[in-house]
């Protein structure tokens, strides 16, 4: 399957991710309210927001793990919302994903985990694949760890191994879910460096979902800030920093905004019954 985006624009302006009016509902609850954003070729786009802002939901929809109620998602020039499982299976080999937990297969060694996409999608001979695997482990500073099981690695090493597996097929587009969550600052900073190295050395477009402000500002070319299922801003780092939107500033300054619940909704939530105001 071709993965070219529409031509006619300078390469760095080409949009490799386009989200338009994405609406996501779980039952009666609307989680994303018409989210629109885009990611340009070769940039690191950070999707940022507090807990419950909808950033993980957005990522799951970008990865076709869930279907939206309405809206469009285009990845690498392909409309993905309408894809069935088989079309997605054929398409998704052009993507790399590093999950928050690593999602390494616990029964396989690090090397086998990294080799898996190559073994499944290519006809390369075993020795070539092993060289490629060692190269990628080298990139993420895990050379020599290929024979260990995931249970024998630290949290930071698991994330690095997940990166190695995500980039083994040299994807054009890499998604990272909370890469520095739960790591000490030094390890987190080294993962940020790794993301920047992947962008600069391999020319990847990288979408990072995170709630870590320091990490976000260190790696982002542009930032999309989500709040309660709405995009507050999607702009360059400087534009986000200088935004006059109070909710963006609350997030940047780590100010807690107390939720004032609607009394009827609050009662309904407590009792499981629907109440209506009496005049």
């Amino acid at each position: 399957m071709a993965t070219d985006v529409a031509g006619g624009e300078p390469e760095h302006e080409q949009k490799v991710v386009e989200v338009e009016d994405l609406v996501v509902r779980y039952g009666d609850r609307e989680i994303l309210h018409g989210v629109s954003m885009d990611v340009r070729r070769g940039e690191v786009m950070v999707i940022m927001g507090g807990s419950g802002s909808g950033k993980s939901t957005l990522l799951r929809h970008l990865l076709h793990l869930e279907r939206p109620a309405s809206g469009r998602i285009r990845l690498l020039g392909h409309e993905v919302c309408g894809m069935d499982d088989l079309e997605w299976t054929a398409f998704s080999r052009h993507l790399g994903v590093a999950f928050q937990s690593g999602a390494l297969f616990s029964s396989m060694t690090v090397g086998e985990n990294v080799l898996l996409p190559l073994r499944e999608h290519t006809q390369l001979d075993e020795s070539t694949m092993e060289i490629m695997m060692r190269l990628k482990l080298e990139v993420v500073s895990l050379a020599g760890f290929e024979n260990l099981l995931p249970s024998e690695l630290s949290g930071g090493m698991i994330k690095r191994a997940a990166f190695a597996r995500a980039i083994i097929m040299d994807p054009a587009l890499l998604f990272c879910d909370e890469p520095s969550a739960g790591l000490d600052p030094v390890v987190a900073a080294s993962l940020d460096e790794l993301i920047l190295r992947l962008r600069d050395a391999l020319g990847m477009t990288i979408v990072v979902v995170t709630h870590e402000l320091d990490s976000a500002f260190r790696i982002a070319d542009r930032i999309t800030v989500l709040d309660r299922g709405h995009v507050l801003i999607s702009a360059s780092v400087d534009a986000v920093r200088s935004s006059d939107d109070p909710r963006v500033q609350d997030l940047l300054n780590r100010r807690f905004e107390e939720e004032v619940p609607d009394p009827e909704e609050y009662l309904s939530r407590l009792t499981g019954e629907r109440f209506e105001a009496v005049d």
Binding site: L63, H64, L65, D85, L86, W88, T89, A90, F91, S92, R93, H94, L95, V97, F99, Q100, S101, A103, L104, F105, S106, L116, P117, E120, H121, R165, F175
Partner: peptide, 17 residues
């Protein structure tokens, strides 16, 4: 266990049905 560790999601996004 694979389900709760996102391993099945990982397969799906690696293009492995």
């Amino acid at each position: 266990t694979m389900q709760i560790n996102n391993e099945i999601d990982a397969l799906s996004v690696m293009g492995i049905h």
